[in-house]
């Protein structure tokens, strides 16, 4: 299990234990986090799992693929340098404790 701390748009902290290998989107949606929709089911096709990753740990994540970068152009909230799609980030032990902040809106 990998512990990821989601910060909801309300500011509420939602720590979620995610099975290793699952995406952060799957962990969030099954773990009761409201600020992520994940409408497409994780195929990088809807941009409704937009999140801001703790900048100090951004370098620990694999780089975004071409399709993730393309889909990030469609996010509803402000796109920032630490914007990622949660469906494209796999929970691995090295990311334990990662803080992921969710935008005000996903659609």
């Amino acid at each position: 299990m990998v512990n990821i701390v989601f910060i909801e748009p309300t500011g509420a902290k939602m720590p979620v234990n995610i099975n290793e290998g699952w995406s952060l989107m799957q962990g969030a949606t099954t773990g009761g986090v409201d600020g992520i929709l994940g409408e497409c089911g994780g195929s990088c096709a809807c941009a409704t799992c937009h999140c801001y990753v703790d900048e100090s740990r951004l370098g620990e994540l694999p780089e975004a693929s071409e399709s993730e970068l393309e889909m990030l152009e469609n996010v509803a909230a402000e796109r920032r340098s630490n914007s990622r799609l949660a469906c494209q980030i796999k929970a691995v032990n090295a990311l334990d404790g990662l803080i992921v902040t969710l935008p005000d809106t996903q659609e």
């Binding site: 995406s23 799957q26 409408e39 497409c40 089911g41 994780g42 195929s43 096709a45």
Partner: peptide
């Protein structure tokens, strides 16, 4: 779910 989640969800 995952990479093969349905294309036609919307």
């Amino acid at each position: 779910g995952g990479v093969h989640a349905c294309l036609g969800t919307s």
